[in-house]
Amino acid sequence: MKYTKKLLEHFQSPHNQGKIKNADGVGEVGNIKCGDIMKLYLKVGKNKKGDDIIKDIKFETLGCAAAIGATSMLTDLAKGKTFDEALNISKDDIVKALGGVPPIKHHCSVLAQDALKKAIASYKTRNS
C-alpha cells in the first residue's frame, strides 16, 4: 500500500482541522469494522442568491492516514459550497483530488461523506 504525496501532505498538515464552537450543524460517524471515528462541524451562511452555504467547516478524526487525508480534502472541497453542491461531492471526487487512494481505503472517503451528510441533516433538523 502506498499513499500519494498529496494525501501525505493532508495527513501531515490537515486543512480545517479542529472544532467550531457553536456550530450550526454537527455530524459524527464511526466505522464499526475498522474503528475509525469522524466528526464534522459546520457554520452555515448565505450566498448572494440567499441559499444556505457552508461558510466554515472543521473536522476531527480518530483514524488512519487515509481517513485524515480524505476528511481534510472533503472539507476543502465543501467549503463555500451550497448544500446541494457539497452533497454532490462523491467518493471518487475525493479520491481523485488526492491523486488516488489505495482501494482498501476507499471506505475512509465514504465515511467522510457520511459525516458531511449527517452534519447538513443536523442543521436542517435544527432549523426546520
Binding site: G35, L62, G63
Partner: peptide, 21 residues
Amino acid sequence: EGESILMMLDMEGIAISTGSA
C-alpha cells in the same frame, strides 16, 4: 490510531509496525 502513528513516525525516519485494523 496505529497506522497514523506508524506513518507519522515514518515521516521522522522511525520504523515500527502496527496491528491496527
